[in-house]
């Protein structure tokens, strides 16, 4: 059986809020190392990969592999009841038809209990190879969100170009062109504002802004975001959750004419 108690319960709500507009039904795959999720959007353009490691929970117990087939719209309805500082506990049998979710207030004077019906979801799992990316950019997640949102107002796609001069986000739309360039930036006192660009070779790729803006719904999870690029492979956008738990988005590049 699964029993997992999360003290940073808002993490669960933020993860679901971040992915529910991209995927609707998905399996939460539970085993002794934690709770994982992998799902593609309907058009098979983007892939979501999440891992909440066992050490993010206290206690965490999962004796055997359990797939929790969850409709995220339904889970969102249950998570509406979650309040800041609540402890959340997930419980399920070995072959569950429902997921038991308990919210406890930090003062333990309120316990809310929900049973969410589960579904059988036949999902294809993709093997994601370890990739040495040509460019890795770590930057404030709010900045990335602002750039994507601003450029989406002008165009449906963005070209991301990483060179020794920095990383350039540019777009061309009916009303004109726009571009934002970021350079390496170090702020010793406010490290969350740093822009770190690691480059092994120049990269230029074009992506749909609709998906990037969607990924930015994960911004409340972390004040930093990591963007990894290599020519001709999907973009990786990563938000670290707690410790080494993560939420990753992969986006297939646009095909050049």
């Amino acid at each position: 059986m699964l029993e997992a108690r999360l003290s940073q319960s808002m993490v669960l709500k933020k993860v679901v809020d971040a992915i529910k507009d991209l995927v609707q039904d998905c399996n939460f795959d539970c085993n002794d190392s934690g709770i994982a999720l992998q799902a593609m959007d309907n058009s098979h353009v983007a892939l979501v990969s999440m891992l909440l490691k066992a050490e993010s929970f206290e206690p965490y117990r999962c004796d055997r592999n359990i797939a929790l087939g969850v409709n995220l719209v339904s889970l969102t309805k249950v998570l509406r009841a979650l309040q800041n500082d609540d402890l959340v506990t997930l419980k399920a049998d070995d072959a569950p038809d429902s997921l038991n979710i308990t919210f406890e207030s930090s003062t333990a004077d309120r316990i809310s209990e929900y049973d969410l019906k589960l579904m059988d979801i036949d999902q294809e799992h993709l093997g994601i190879p370890d990739t040495e990316y040509a460019a890795t950019v770590t930057m404030p997640s709010t900045e990335f969100k602002r750039i994507c949102t601003d450029l989406q107002a002008m165009s449906e796609s963005v070209t991301i170009e990483a060179t020794k001069d920095g990383i350039k986000f540019s777009c061309a739309g009916d009303i004109g062109n726009g571009a934002v360039t970021l350079r390496n930036y170090q702020n010793v006192e406010k490290e969350h504002l740093n822009v770190d660009i690691e480059l092994t070779e120049p990269v230029s790729l074009t992506f749909s802004l609709k998906y990037l803006v969607n990924f930015c719904k994960a911004q409340p999870l972390s004040d930093r975001v990591k963007i990894c690029l290599s020519n001709e492979v999907p973009l990786l956008v990563e938000y670290l959750i707690t410790g080494t738990s993560y939420l990753r988005f992969y986006l297939a590049p646009k095909v050049r004419d």
Binding site: M40, S43, H44, V45, A46, L47, E124, H125, L126, G127, I128, P129, S208, V233, P234, Y250, L251, A252, P253, K254, V255, R256, D257
Partner: peptide, 14 residues
């Protein structure tokens, strides 16, 4: 969408 790559063509099925 025209010109949009498919994620399944980059990652192998398990």
């Amino acid at each position: 969408e025209a010109g949009q790559g498919n994620i399944m063509s980059f990652f192998s099925k398990k």
